[in-house]
Design a protein around this nucleic acid. Structure first.
Lengths: 226, 226
DNA sequence: CGTGTGTTTGACATACCTCAAAGTCTGTGG
DNA sequence: CCACAGACTTTGAGGTATGTCAAACACACG
């Protein structure tokens, strides 16, 4: 396909750049939003609200991730996207995107890859939430987020990674209470594995963390975009 | 597209029909299988093995479901598919399918729909495993499986549904121990909500079950195929 | 007739939750 | 500049849902 065609098609997407500050909803649990989003910068969380007000975070996303897409006929039930820090996204109407999927195999492959990535990440979190201890869940989450942020496994002792999370959000992702997360973070600090406060993770012992997180050898493919 | 063309393309898929008896692996956690499967009949479970031998079932699948597909560049880590009863599947090499995706929008849409469905189901289970009590998780699982089996919500008191599961598999799906699942099933029986044994679920009080399961109004879209 | 897999039950242990309270920090309005 | 409210964190005491260990039973299978 020629460049001018791609440009014309890109225009057809009618995308708009939007920014959200920390805590703001990008889309809520009840409105069918009708957009597909691409993250330009910042972090956000996809969360699912249950009837009694409980909240589960299924994924954290950052630059390069595509989100908000659902195939026709599937309602995105109780799902919302919330900004963790200052987030800017590129929003395009889902209908416009659907039209282009058929004619643009590359775009289609990208979408399919993103959906596969989403599944892998969610399945991984499900396995850890269902089967492992609080300490392991938290360790695994930090490994995931560190790889997402730096795009590689970090081995250097003392490395610092900015992760704009509250303990309460860690709790919502791991299926724990914020209070228990706090106790586990204290233990990780006392055991000199890691230190997390004010949105900065310090890896005091990356190897110990990797062991705690029960990571296999080849994991991490899905955590890195591109 | 003309019928003879579709037939020719179908042949290009080089699919094969295979059968598996209860307990047999359709694919294991370490082999990259390279196939995409379509279920002709029977039930199977997708499970994820952790390093220490723990197992989490992320989905149960039955007739019409597509599974085993992963986009290139994403390793399906530690994932396996195991037959729950006598299962027959249609297996086709993933490479052949990929070629057809570009030229067959309908096939592509079907695949995307199935991936979206997979995500929704997994996210739903994650939310319940992470946030709700043992009783609610089990109730929710039974609702899901009943809708999958009958393709509708069941209201009739005393309805019976065949679900070829062991208590141990319910435990692996809900993040509980088989022993605790057994206790909860006893409670559900004593409370005259449902009775489950020998692979048959009897709905003694469908409304109470629905309440326990914390189901929203419009849930269930993703549970029904077609 | 043994062996294995699944179920059932009891006694006990514990990881995690709940409730309560105080501390820190930020932003806001007087 | 101070007072106050609101988010987030921290810690303690005590409760409970769920796990662990142990044993017996039922049933299918070879």
């Amino acid at each position: 396909m020629k460049t001018e065609d791609e440009l014309r098609d890109l225009q057809m997407l009618q995308y708009r750049i939007k920014s959200f500050s920390a805590g703001k909803l990008i889309y809520g649990p009840h409105e069918p939003h009708g957009f597909v989003y691409n993250i330009v910068s910042g972090w956000l969380a996809i969360s699912h609200d249950l009837l009694d007000g409980q909240r589960q975070i299924s994924q954290f996303l950052t630059k390069g991730a595509l989100f908000g897409f659902r195939p026709e006929g599937l309602v995105t039930n109780g799902q919302s996207a919330v900004a963790l820090d200052e987030v800017t996204v590129c929003a395009m109407p889902a209908a416009n995107l659907s039209v282009l999927l058929n004619s643009h195999p590359k775009l289609n492959r990208r979408l399919v890859w993103m959906m596969g990535r989403e599944s892998l990440i969610t399945e991984n979190r499900l396995a850890f939430v269902g089967q492992t201890s609080a300490l392991t869940r938290i360790a695994n989450l930090f490994m995931e987020l560190t790889v997402m942020a730096t795009r590689k496994l970090v081995h250097v002792v003392g490395s610092k990674v900015r992760l704009p999370l509250t303990q309460s959000q860690i709790a919502d992702a791991t299926g724990l209470t914020a209070i228990h997360v706090n106790r586990m973070l204290r233990k990780l600090r006392e055991d000199r594995v890691l230190d997390f406060h004010d949105g900065v993770l310090t890896l005091m012992n990356p190897d110990a963390l990797k062991t705690l997180a029960q990571l296999g050898e080849e994991i991490g493919d899905a955590w890195v975009i591109d």
